[in-house]
């Protein structure tokens, strides 16, 4: 490819992505505008009076607690997902278990299930077990989003690892479990990280489970907080956008850190 063509395509690409991600830019700069400027015509594409008041407003409005709740819910859900799905994927990839087709089917079908179908029954189950209005309910419910995805992605990955690696380990006197922990896990770390990140995103983005299982605002994650703030802040868009920006921040940070692995992992995890 000629240098000239490379340049033209790169600039076209930047313009396309810039236009596509304009809403994200608009969200962030609106958070730094004054209320008057938000309603100004014609709109300003960069804040005239750059200010942090909206962030201070939402922080004093309790965004910190929501943030903490989101971290707790999404963090714990991710741990649950990894503890369950890593061994399961390994088992499905390496052992000739009876009923393997049926179990794969369980994961494939549950991945496609709408949350509304399980919502009321889970509400009843959590009610009977005293888990309503605790962190446990949304943690367990959002973990169900990550488990099938992770099992299917990691199984494909494990199947690609040569069996000789474990056989060599077992000759060295390692048991199956130790071979798994000491040989397989270290080389699978990037894929496991991808599953962790995706499961974290799934849980971080949940709204329906949290607003259904937790009536107690003290336990709400950011998404539920935002939904509630729409009523509270009305058309104070700068405050709402500050709230939104804070909610998106961790997702973008994780994405930037893991970008290359994430893009590859997403493809293999979604199609299979």
């Amino acid at each position: 490819m000629s240098k000239r063509k490379n340049w033209i395509l790169s600039i076209t690409g930047i313009v396309i992505v810039g236009l596509f991600l304009f809403p994200v830019y608009w969200m962030i700069i609106t958070a730094f505008k004054t209320q008057n400027e938000v309603f100004q015509t014609p709109p300003t594409f960069f804040p005239q009076n750059f200010q942090l008041d909206s962030f201070l407003t939402v922080i004093s409005g309790g965004v910190g607690q929501y943030f903490l709740n989101s971290v707790i819910i999404a963090g714990c859900a991710t741990i649950v997902v990894l503890l369950l799905s890593v061994p399961s994927a390994y088992g499905l990839a390496r052992f000739k278990v009876r009923g393997i087709g049926l179990m794969m089917l369980v994961f494939l079908v549950t991945q496609m299930l709408p949350a509304t179908v399980v919502l009321t029954p889970l509400f009843v189950v959590f009610n009977n077990t005293g888990l309503l209005n605790t962190y446990v309910a949304p943690i367990l419910a959002t973990a169900t989003l990550g488990v099938p995805f992770s099992v299917l992605l990691l199984r494909t990955f494990f199947m690609g690892i040569p069996k000789e690696l474990e056989e060599a380990a077992s000759i060295d006197g390692c048991g199956r479990l130790r071979a798994f922990l000491q040989v397989i896990l270290p080389i699978s770390l990037p894929s496991v990280l991808v599953c962790g990140a995706i499961s974290f995103f799934f849980a971080w983005g949940d709204l329906i489970f949290s607003i259904t299982f937790n009536r107690d605002q003290e336990l709400w994650p950011l998404t539920a907080g935002i939904f509630n703030a729409i009523g509270r802040y009305g058309i104070e868009w700068n405050n709402l956008m500050a709230f939104a920006t804070i909610s998106v921040l961790p997702v973008i940070i994780i994405f930037v850190l893991l970008q290359k692995h994430l893009v590859e992992g997403l493809v293999s995890g979604s199609v299979k």
Binding site: G91, T110, P121
Partner: peptide, 27 residues
Amino acid sequence: TQWKGYVFVLPAVIFMLVLIGYPLIYN
């Protein structure tokens, strides 16, 4: 060998059956 396989596989399957499979039928 199968017995060991189930130890690896089943926890996740049971988790999904309890939290998704059972609610599905309940619904």
